[in-house]
Design a protein around this nucleic acid. Structure first.
Length: 249
DNA sequence: GCGACAG
DNA sequence: ATCTTGTCGC
């Protein structure tokens, strides 16, 4: 099994990572409506980690937007490329997610990310960053409000309320199921917030989270389990030194 | 300075 | 994200 390494030139510090975000944020496109819901393909991406082994597994699952049936899947396993820092999540997930997307046998259509797009301290969250790098239409659907505020949406499915960064609306809290905690939707790249909300509702006929996210989550966890099981052999095969168990800086 | 903080 | 037992409910 081939593992994805950290890309050359990838930021090594928080300062460098923030500079990269500031350099790329101007390329986010927000004036396109994006692909209509219920047509074409929709792809979910997600990652799972094994911190002890320094591994990250990513999955991309392509669904038919009309039927929500799985059309294609791909996974990739890599080394952790950045620590988790709120606001810098993209640097931890993107290399392996891109590798999984590259392995798909068909175009992904709209990409649904587990996290935020323009709802971000510098308006350049994971979904926007991935969109700019791939030029694919992307949206972010997050499970919690991060640093933002919102009023409780109406209790029925479809109810929504602005997700606010101070007075600025950066996304929406959207109720995807009656009486269930909302999800937090934002535009990523080449998709409007309205289209992002419509896609999110189309992807939640049964559960709180989009089918894309659920399928990708299950697949990347499976890929991680398999990678962990094969780890020592894989490490030897790829010529990487095993980390000394007693070496904990 | 302290606490909070997508995954 | 991940660590983890039981528990309430359809």
């Amino acid at each position: 099994m081939t593992t994805v390494g950290v890309p050359a030139g990838w930021p090594a510090t928080e300062e460098e990572a923030r500079a990269v975000q500031d350099g790329l944020r101007g390329r986010v496109v927000l004036d396109e409506p994006g692909p209509p819901p219920g047509t074409g393909r929709v792809t979910g991406v997600d990652v799972a980690y094994d911190d002890g082994l320094d591994l990250v597994a990513a999955a991309a699952v392509v669904l038919d937007a009309a039927t929500l049936e799985v059309v294609a899947e791909a996974t990739a396993v890599g080394r952790v490329s950045f620590p988790y820092v709120p606001g810098l999540l993209a640097f931890r997930e993107i290399p392996t997610v891109r590798a999984a997307l590259d392995r798909l046998p068909c175009p992904p259509g709209l990409v649904v990310c587990d996290g935020y797009g323009v709802a971000h301290p510098r308006r350049f969250g994971l979904a926007s960053h991935l969109g700019v790098l791939t030029d694919l239409p992307t949206i972010g659907v997050a499970k919690n409000p991060f640093t933002f505020t919102y009023d409780d949406p109406a209790p029925a499915r479809g109810g929504s309320a602005p997700l606010l960064d101070g007075a600025e609306e950066v996304g929406r809290a959207l109720r995807t199921r009656d009486g269930v905690k909302p999800v937090f939707v934002s535009a990523g790249h080449r998709v409007s917030l309205g289209t992002a909300l419509a896609h999110t509702l189309a992807l939640t006929p049964r559960y709180r989270l989009p089918e894309t996210t659920r399928r990708a989550d299950a697949l990347c966890r499976q890929a991680l389990r398999e990678a962990v099981r094969a780890f020592p052999a894989d490490e030897a095969a790829s010529g990487r030194p095993r980390r000394d168990p007693g070496d904990r800086p």
